[in-house]
Design a protein around this nucleic acid. Sequence first.
RNA 1: GCUCCCUUCGUCUAGGGGUUAGGACGCGGCCCUCUCAAGGCUGAAACACGAGUUCAAUUCUCGUAGGGAGCGCCA
Length: 469
Amino acid sequence: MTVKTRFAPSPTGFLHIGGVRTALFSWLYARHHGGQFVLRIEDTDRERSTQEAVDVILEGLDWLKLDHDEGPYYQTRRFDRYAELADSLLRTGKAYHCYCTREELEARRAAQLARGENPRYDGRCRDRTTPVPGVQPVLRFRTPDEGVTVVEDLVRGAVEFQNAELDDLIMVRSDGSPTFHFGVVVDDGDMGITHVIRGDDHLNNTPRQMHMIQALGYPVPAYGHLPMILGSDGAKLSKRHGAVNILDYRDEGFLPDAVLNYLVRLGWSHGDQEVFSREDMIRLFDIGAVNASASRFDSEKLQWLNQQHLKSSAPESIAAPFLRQLERAGLDPALGPAPAAVIEAYRERATTLRDLAESAAYLYGEPRTVDEAAVRKHLTSAIAAPLALLVARLGALDGWTRGEIHAALAAVAAESGIGFGKLGQPVRVAVTGGTVSPPIDVTLELLGREKVLERLGRAVSLTGSGAVA
RNA sequence: GCUCCCUUCGUCUAGGGGUUAGGACGCGGCCCUCUCAAGGCUGAAACACGAGUUCAAUUCUCGUAGGGAGCGCCA
């Protein structure tokens, strides 16, 4: 049997980290087993579904390269099929019309709750043979009322439910539209889904879905319920911690593989390994090794992983998103060095591509900020002469490689009777406006001779003029 | 309230009847060093609680506590 999994989000809010984790595990399971991955949009709630949310799902999965083999299917385009199967269940007596009104249902629920009972439909329309005039009925599924249903969960093992605890749920609303539960089982059946991997908020719904899918004559798929991801404070994920639009991570300069790597380690591990490539994940992933307990979102570890992936990526492979970050930062890439060279020099000192672009801003134009305290400390009159000498030496260099630049710096330092660092730091401040940058020879090489000589020249006049003591 | 699920350092986790309870993020220290990083070494830091089983329980069983989910003509 070839494995077929699916990701079935409802487009009622932005795709966030929790949804992506569900998609990832489902996708990994399919890829690991050489199976198929289906994308299905569960948009039966027309009130709350938005095209914008659909677009984020599509764009987010595309960014993360969680590619699907089938779909996207849209449930709103399959209403005829749901009606057809609902009808056959009605004809075979596996489903029945219920004429209870919302108000009646609500009143009974409240009464049951008050008595300390599990609020559930009492089945009073099960044997009704005559319609109630003026009431559009809903269609309910006739759930077995005795016996035990066992969910052999891929993550938790066997979970038992007493059928007597389960009530007859609504399959078709009074307006004729299918409910979530019915849509899911019809679709999973029609699409030949073999493994349903989803959030554990669905675990309690699973036995009833199993009954329906059996009634429909489909084989029951295997289920795997993933623990949820909590916010850093242990509360439900919200806007405050990680429940932001997944595309925000892209915009903040995270790498898709790093996001996936972070997510795969939430609830799953492989020995002591922390950094996983996409190929590693596919090869090693094992749903049976997934933890049953919820985990918290830790943005610091995500940042660390992002840097790990930044360091191991081929610079050219991340040049395009880096360029976008430069543009986002208002910088013109044409005015600076080749992106790969900047990435190479900076990726050990940046956690995201956005950081990287921002700290490299001085390469594309004048420094955006000048650390005045550093200027006072390093650009003193004592350094005027060595800087002037350096300008002369750098100007006379044949080439412009870090090796030649380093040699010139070392020579000037030696001739001026000062340590390399005593020269390097003032140079750094003069050309970058701050005290932090890659090794000074690399920094100058990246900046280019023209900008270096210009900025050093200005520093010479500043320090030599006595403007700074 | 009822049903179901969960519980190892602050966080992510490994382990599993006898271990100095391992790794990673973060935090501290040292080394390296032209700055910042990166890297190396290193330190502090955990088996929720109570019974039971057993020669032995963090590990198995049962409770308790705490947390979560479901109980909609939402998904």
